[in-house]
């Protein structure tokens, strides 16, 4: 997180989409799929937690 942090409106189901994260990183040396899978799962959990307080 820095001045590089992008402004975006997250899609439903996401808070910090992997796509945005990758753009910020400009690519990673290892296997993207391994990192992406849990990133997205946990990001969705964060989204559900936030919207829980609205849907309750």
């Amino acid at each position: 997180m820095s001045e590089k942090e992008k402004k975006f409106v997250p899609e439903p189901g996401t808070c910090t989409p992997w796509k945005v994260k990758m753009e910020e990183l400009g690519g990673i040396p290892g296997n993207e799929e391994i990192v992406k899978k849990d990133w997205e799962r946990l990001d969705e959990a964060a989204y559900n937690f936030l919207w829980f307080w609205v849907h309750r």
Partner: peptide, 16 residues
């Protein structure tokens, strides 16, 4: 309307 998830996290949650 502009960014509901952001609004929930930064305005609504601290308020409730």
């Amino acid at each position: 309307i502009a960014n509901p998830t952001e609004w929930i996290a930064t305005t609504y949650l601290p308020r409730i």
